[in-house]
Simulated scan of single mutants.
Amino acid sequence: MTIQEYFELVFTDYTLRTITLGTAVLGAICGMLGSFAVLRKQSLLGDAISHAALPGIAIAFLLTGTKDSNLLLIGALVSGLVGTYWIRGMISKTHLKTDTALGLILSIFFGFGMLLLTFIQKQPNANQAGLDKYLFGQAATLVESDVRLMVIVTAISLFILLLFWKEFKILLFDAEFTQTLGFNTKFIDILITFFIVLAIVLGLQTVGVVLMSAMLLAPAAAARQWTNSLAMMILLAAIFGAFSGVVGTAISASQDNLSTGPVIVLVAAVFVFFSFVFSPGRGLLFREIRFRQNRRDLELKKTLQFMYSIAKNHKDISHPHTVRILNDFRGFTRGTLRKLEKKNWIEIHGQNWSLTTKGYETAENLYNQQKPHD
């Protein structure tokens, strides 16, 4: 099946429509909430929480004996919240830094989860098969109830975001100032973290424990390159995330033996790469263009200043000077003369040049700006 055939069938085929809608909604909520993790410099938090959720899935299965996705996700949510609480406690009550606490919780919880999965695999109960889908995700298992849950959580997250918009915005950019205004910063911080955990847990079934942090961070990182506005960043991140989910699902469905989760993450990575290179404000390409332009402007101004140092010794600023006098000046080229003439800073007459009034005044201003002040 080609990608074109996929999009033709997505409106008529129940399974394809469910999976596509589910990955789109997941991408949108991950992009929206991932923006807060990126701006708060908590990028590793998503990785730690997703790995911390694994033992909760295993324990929920051991307690219930069923593979009901809702029960397993509740176990993942509880385990993720416990891991988050431990991270916050280690940071606030010990001398450990944030990255150390995140690394410890990630490795300890993930190791414990893998131990439990190994134990479950050796049990005679046939229901244990399939739990490993939470490691790398399996979007094909999404059903309508899963998508409905994602939509509900996304709607609630959006409502809370709008309700506490002012508090979230102030906390992101100046936590101490937020506290002096009388806001309960601890409650706001916990609220943001809770919804990030919730988004991660929702994505485990689709993307998996290993790749969930990329789904959370990639759309937000791409959106950050395009804007300085928080509202616009959240909107762009949601669009990038949703588009990554739809396109990734289409690509994986059009090819045999392609897992949906990894393909979605790779599509999101393309957004990140494109944004890092081509965004006008922060992109590497435009940054290099600006750097080269600034360097050329600096060379022009240095040449103009050198000409000024020659011309100011004459009463008549339009006194012609030979071009050969510039040959020993570092950075001088014939192209430099043409650019100076194009800016109307000099006039060229055969092998001679002379400063214009505009060029003389510009060079004099540059000289006065660089002259040390008493």
Score class of each variant (00 low, 15 high):
Pro320Leu: 02
Lys301Gln: 14
Met150Leu: 11
Arg224Thr: 04
Lys166Glu: 13
Asn294His: 13
Ala222Asp: 02
Pro280Asn: 12
Gly34Lys: 02
Gln225Gly: 10
Gly241Val: 04
Arg330Asn: 15
Pro262Gln: 02
Ile160Val: 14
Phe274Leu: 14
Thr2Gln: 06
Thr64Val: 08
Asp256Ala: 14
Tyr6Ala: 01
Phe110Tyr: 08
Arg330Met: 13
Gln123Val: 12
Phe306Ser: 13
Ser252Asp: 02
Gln225Trp: 02
Leu204Ser: 03
Phe286His: 13
Gly111His: 03
Phe159Gly: 06
Ile105His: 07
Asn228Trp: 05
Asn344Phe: 08
Val209Glu: 07
Gln138Leu: 02
Lys186Tyr: 09
Ala60Val: 07
His349Thr: 12
Ser318Trp: 06
Val151Trp: 00
Ile57Thr: 06
Gly261Lys: 00
Arg17Met: 04
Leu171Asp: 10
Ser157Gly: 14
Asp189Met: 10
Gln121Tyr: 12
Phe177Asn: 13
Gln4Lys: 12
Thr20Cys: 03
Gly245Met: 00
Leu217Thr: 07
Val201Gly: 03
Ile346Trp: 03
Phe195Trp: 11
Leu21Cys: 01
Ser279Gly: 11
Leu21Ala: 02
Ser275Arg: 02
Thr260Gly: 01
Leu230Glu: 04
Val38Thr: 11
Gly203Arg: 00
Phe11Trp: 12
Pro262Ile: 01
Leu181Pro: 11
Ala231Cys: 07
Thr2Met: 04
Ala139Gln: 02
Thr12Arg: 08
Ile87Gly: 05
Glu347Asn: 11
Gly75Glu: 04
Gly89Pro: 07
Leu211Phe: 09
Val25Tyr: 00
Thr362Cys: 08
Gly89Met: 04
Arg224Lys: 11
Leu266Lys: 02
Thr193Glu: 06
Thr12Tyr: 10
Gln293Asn: 15
Ser244Phe: 04
Leu26Tyr: 00
Asn184Leu: 08
His349Lys: 13
Gln138Cys: 01
Ile152His: 01
Glu5Asn: 15
Tyr85Asn: 14
Leu62Phe: 09
Ile105Asn: 05
Asp374Ile: 15
Ile120Phe: 03
Ile49Gly: 03
Arg40Leu: 08
Ile200Leu: 10
Ala175Glu: 15
Ile74Trp: 03
Glu288Asn: 14
Asp316His: 04
Trp226His: 12
Ala129Glu: 13
Ile188His: 05
